[in-house]
């Protein structure tokens, strides 16, 4: 006899979408709300097109997956990160289409999920207004430009930050179909350190902050692909100090 899947725990935020998202994302794995999972956001959504979120699971055990999502966004999931050879830290910028819970969740090696989140008040339209570069008309001129750097970090992990010029079209703006970065890999000397699946809920010109395991003089390779099959590559060397 098959055991019935356990229901996700009651949502402290009282979100109407919690049960549906929890079942989809976490399937039948145990889920618990964990205040020690550090989800950091500004106290105000000054710009609903570009709301910064940082998820930090360092010190909570080995993490195999990290997700950042907003319950009431039409595209709830923004990023799904596997930190294969990286400290469990992910900072990105997302769109907010209305007032919504914003959450971070991490999956431990035993399969269980830890979740934290908060309601964020936001003006409407973060997902349904055209990207600034579309309005300006110069998105194609700068498509795929990657800027960034690496910095020495703590406990054997470096700090890697980069931004990729991309319109990240949601498909909700008239006559502009969905067009977004969808996968991104970080590697060092051929060894995969992390993979991220990306949705158009990430802000235009997405920015990433990661902590891959690397020492000074290591070269970190970034490769990404968008929904048109276009590839993007970049590399940065970890400095000595």
């Amino acid at each position: 006899m098959t055991q019935q899947a356990p229901s996700p725990p009651t949502d402290p935020l009282g979100s109407p979408m919690w049960q549906a998202h929890a079942r989809t994302l976490f399937e039948n794995n145990p889920v618990r709300f964990e205040p020690a999972l550090k989800l950091s956001m500004p106290q105000i959504a000054e710009d609903q097109h570009r709301f910064p979120v940082a998820l930090d699971a360092r010190g909570l055990g080995e993490v195999k997956r990290m997700v950042i999502f907003a319950d009431l966004n039409p595209i709830p999931l923004a990023a799904d990160y596997h930190p294969l050879g990286a400290a469990p830290y992910l900072a990105i910028r997302i769109k907010l289409d209305q007032r919504t819970p914003v959450r971070g969740a991490v999956q431990l090696v035993d399969g269980s999920w830890l979740v934290n989140g908060a309601w964020v008040d936001a003006a409407g339209g973060g997902c349904s207004a055209p990207p600034v570069s579309r309005v300006r008309g110069d998105w194609a001129q700068h498509l795929g430009e990657i800027r960034g750097g690496a910095w020495p970090g703590e406990h054997g992990a470096a700090r890697l930050r980069f931004t990729i010029r991309h319109p990240m079209d949601t498909g909700f703006v008239a006559n502009i179909p969905t067009y977004n970065l969808e996968t991104l890999n970080i590697s060092c000397a051929g060894k995969l350190l992390g993979t991220i699946e990306i949705w158009a809920a990430m802000a235009e010109d997405p920015a990433f902050t990661l902590m891959p395991v690397a020492v000074p003089r290591d070269r970190l390779d970034i490769t990404a692909r968008d929904t048109n099959g276009r590839d993007y590559t970049a590399a940065v060397t970890v400095p000595a100090s």
Partner: peptide
């Protein structure tokens, strides 16, 4: 102060990144 600092980060940060971080694409 904290409130206005976080608003200012939103106003200025992406443009500063565009100015101060070097191109690393290949």
């Amino acid at each position: 102060g904290r409130y206005e600092l976080q608003r200012s980060v939103s106003h200025f940060y992406p443009a500063l990144e565009g100015k101060l971080l070097p191109r690393i694409d290949q």
